[in-house]
């Protein structure tokens, strides 16, 4: 049953137009997984443990990849990092540039940090009654960044003191994200990227995290209902879910062009079903069905000329949402 779900979402099928990988790519590229942890080990003893772990378990499945459905191949998949072909390396480099080029394809995501990081920070500080003054308001909170991509949002959250797991089904992205940590000892020890799907993580790690973030992801998923369900499942009672989503026309430059067309030259079938913008009302209903209490919905507007995001009333184009998992003990207290 699990494997079927996996198949649907990350199953080397078409789960996301922008970040798509076909089964072919999946096969050739798995070998780069966490190849970077070796270089990280120079800075952080922890990374050493990571890579040791990886080598020990090499016979089974490399690194922290979870729930790959290419399981038949994973048994004897090589873990060395040199099996990539030239062509793929080029893609790899193109991707690397894009994720961390502040003024490139993902400019809008970088710019959005000035809004969404404070939104998440203040939401968590408020929700958890945090009193801090040392610049680490999220100290030791555990966060899963679902669909972390290049880590544009994971890194700032880690800098604020959180431990972040960045989860993304696209291997190139997690690799690049991991690479980007190399030069930053402040965040290196607080972030780990995992290549996999949220369903799989939810199946074993339910109620483990203080917060789950899915920023600019829900408009890409094939099955919104089960995606949201998994996100909620990861949360401890009282934990916070943050979702931001935008109308894709705004980001057409960054996304549609980026992966699907420019890099992989793939236009997936049946894109129309899940390319749609998710209206806040719909999301609210799904969340409430998952025992979540929606605390806040804010509209957002991008001003490309100023490369700046602004909070607005209108939630019809882009919005940010904060919901909290209802704590049954709290509910009981309330009744008393």
């Amino acid at each position: 049953m699990l494997s079927r779900k996996t198949l649907k979402l990350i199953g080397c099928g078409n789960y996301c137009r922008s970040c798509i990988l076909t089964s072919n790519n999946c096969k050739t590229l798995t070998s780069v997984k966490f190849g970077t942890s070796r270089s990280s080990s120079l800075h952080c003893p922890l990374a050493l443990t990571f890579s040791k772990l990886r080598y020990q378990k090499a016979g089974m499945c490399s690194g922290f990849q979870i729930g790959r459905n290419c399981s038949s191949k994973s048994q004897n998949r090589p873990v060395v990092t040199t099996t990539m072909d030239e062509e793929e390396l080029k893609h790899f480099q193109a991707l690397a540039k894009s994720w961390w080029d502040e003024t490139g394809d993902f400019e809008a995501l970088h710019a959005m940090n000035k809004l969404r990081v404070p939104f998440i920070r203040d939401g968590l500080v408020d929700q958890n009654d945090i009193v801090e003054s040392d610049g680490l308001p999220l100290k030791d909170l555990t966060i899963v960044d679902v669909g972390s991509g290049g880590g544009i949002l994971s890194e700032p959250l880690a800098r604020l003191g959180a431990f972040v797991i960045g989860l993304d089904p696209v291997e190139e992205s997690t690799t690049i994200a991991q690479l980007h940590l190399k030069e930053d000892p402040r965040v290196q020890c607080r972030v780990k990227y995992i290549n996999g799907s949220v369903e799989d993580l939810a199946s074993t790690e339910s109620e483990k995290f203080d917060a789950v973030v899915a920023s600019e992801v829900v408009e890409h998923v094939a099955d919104l209902v089960s995606f949201v369900e998994s996100c909620c499942k990861l949360l401890k009672p009282g934990g916070s879910l943050f979702i931001t989503t935008m109308n894709k026309t705004v980001l057409s430059k960054s996304l549609a062009v980026f992966a699907a067309e420019k890099v992989f030259k793939i236009v997936p079938e049946g894109t129309h079903d899940w390319e749609k913008f998710v209206p806040p009302e719909d999301l609210k209903v799904i969340l409430e069905n998952n025992n979540m209490d929606v605390k806040m919905i804010h509209g957002m507007l991008y001003l490309p000329v100023f490369r700046e995001w602004k909070w607005v009333k209108d939630t019809s184009i882009n919005y940010a949402l904060h919901a909290v998992k209802i704590d049954p003990t709290d509910v009981a207290d309330d009744r008393l």
């Binding site: 922890l46 443990t49 729930g67 555990t142 607080r190 993580l201 074993t204």
Partner: peptide, 29 residues
């Protein structure tokens, strides 16, 4: 396959615990 996944996630928990213990390393960096 499902078993496999479980194993990975046990590992994932270990990663987590290690991350949590990593703090002192930060200053040394």
């Amino acid at each position: 396959m499902a078993v496999n996944v479980m194993k990975h996630c046990v590992k994932c928990t270990r990663v987590w615990n290690q991350l949590a213990r990593c703090q002192p390393v930060l200053s040394r960096c």
